[in-house]
Amino acid sequence: MSKATFSVWRGDKSGGKLVDYTTEVSEGMVVLDAVHQIQAESANDMAVRWNCKAGKCGSCSAEINGMPKLMCMTRLNTLDLSKPVTIEPMRAFPSIRDLVTDVSWNFRVKKTIKKFKPRKPDAPDGTWRVQNEDIERPQEMRKCIECFLCQDVCHVLRDHQKHEEFIGPRFLVYTAALEMNPIDDDDRVDDLKFKHNIGFCNITKCCTKVCPEHITITDNAIIPLKERVVDRHYDPLKKLLKVFGPK
């Protein structure tokens, strides 16, 4: 058994600071284990959000040594324990307390996206016929566990605070899953351009890098959506046709 020190951000929206805690570490431990141990030993009231502890629910997002990660999937043997490990809350969202942030904005944004609307069923019993090849993309997007790490790292949100204008990578992935679903019949392309400002994304791929589900957010979700927007609104031939073409 050896010991390691963790600098955990303690505070609330009025401010806070890193507080050092030293605790025993053992083989296979993840950051969330260390936080729980500290909580049980010396900081009963340390606020942390977690549920499944298996990388499936996306609750325990935090910034570990400055990197956005799930605490439950970050093994201590991947970190340098010779110096304190910093654990801070996600910085793109307002603080509630300690490691817990107010992510309610995400839930409001989702409601503004047109919901799934099925096309007419293929079979008389009201079911659809779909091939596996046609759902690979939407299934990739639907792996999302809503940890919001992509939102945390997106500079449009984190640095420019465009929360009121831009929906962020998570909801571009959500929109992509709907748009690419072979059973869905609705159209969200105009919304992407005018309401959700997909143009703000300049494809720095930071979101893709931090995704714990390894969704290729930029390449497989955002760029295809941008292409649809471009096809409809920026195609020069179509523009000419609109102006001079038959009414």
């Binding site: 919901k115 799934f116 099925p118 293929d122 019993d125 009201g126 079911t127 659809w128 016929r129 779909v130 091939q131 596996n132 759902i135 939407p138 299934q139 639907r142 899953a177 709907l178 679903n181 059973i183 869905d184």
Partner: peptide, 19 residues
Amino acid sequence: VRELEAWGAVFDRTKDGKI
């Protein structure tokens, strides 16, 4: 289960395209 598909669930498929 079928209702879930009508609400947007994307299940794995059989060769003939069923759930």
